[in-house]
Simulated scan of single mutants.
Amino acid sequence: MSAPITLGFALVFALSATLAAPLNAQEAPATAAVEVFAPVDGATADLAAYVWQKRPVVVFADSPNDPAFAEQLRLIEARWPELAARDVVVITDTTLDPASDIRRKLRPRGFSLVLMTKDGQVSIRKPLPWDGREIMRAIDKMPIRREEIRNGAAR
């Protein structure tokens, strides 16, 4: 092989490698793992630990076999990446006795969805399953979330 042909192959190879590579780090595919949907057990959860860190969504039922409970978890899981981006933590509690600290504090009756703010206040209570999109809308209306969006923390 002559030098000009070898140089030509090298240039074609370098050019194709450059075009195949992302132009900058922002265009590179995300290699960070997406947060996996994993509800926290209400028996071990501490709401105080989430103040100013997360927005608790607490799902109560009298039994893990409650169809409304299963439906609510399915609806949340379907929108999990978007909810996780809003700093949501899902806490589940299906144990009546002994009552957890969260159950004693929030006092649900049967199935209940409780959406809390980052400052630890109850924002919304729902007696029926609520779609993930509705949960996100409610979060996006919260003053703290609006401030996050204004400051560029919206993900």
Rank of each mutant, 00 (worst) to 15 (best):
V58M: 00
V51K: 08
V90Q: 05
A3G: 12
T18K: 03
R125I: 02
D131L: 12
R107H: 14
L83R: 11
W130T: 15
R109A: 13
A61S: 01
V58S: 04
M1R: 09
A10Q: 05
L115A: 02
K126H: 15
P64S: 13
P129Q: 10
E27Y: 04
F9T: 14
K54A: 01
R79G: 12
F111A: 06
P127S: 00
I5F: 13
L96M: 11
L128A: 14
A49K: 12
A78H: 07
L73Q: 00
G152K: 14
M136Q: 05
F60A: 01
R107M: 11
A70N: 14
A153E: 11
G120N: 06
D101Y: 12
P98K: 07
A10S: 11
A32H: 04
L19P: 05
L11V: 09
A70T: 06
S100H: 01
E147I: 14
D131Q: 14
D131A: 14
V12F: 07
A20N: 02
A17H: 02
P29Y: 07
A68N: 13
V34K: 06
D119P: 01
D140E: 14
T92G: 05
W80L: 06
P64F: 12
V36L: 10
R146M: 12
P67D: 03
W130Q: 15
I124D: 13
E35I: 08
L19Q: 03
V58I: 09
I102K: 04
N151R: 11
V57F: 05
W130C: 15
S123I: 02
A21K: 06
L19H: 00
P98T: 08
F111H: 00
M116K: 05
D131S: 13
Y50I: 12
D140I: 09
D87L: 11
D41H: 03
W80S: 03
V34W: 02
Y50V: 11
E27I: 05
P4N: 01
A3Y: 14
D119N: 10
I76D: 07
T31E: 11
R107D: 13
A14C: 00
L106M: 10
L19G: 02
S63Y: 03
P67K: 04
A28F: 04
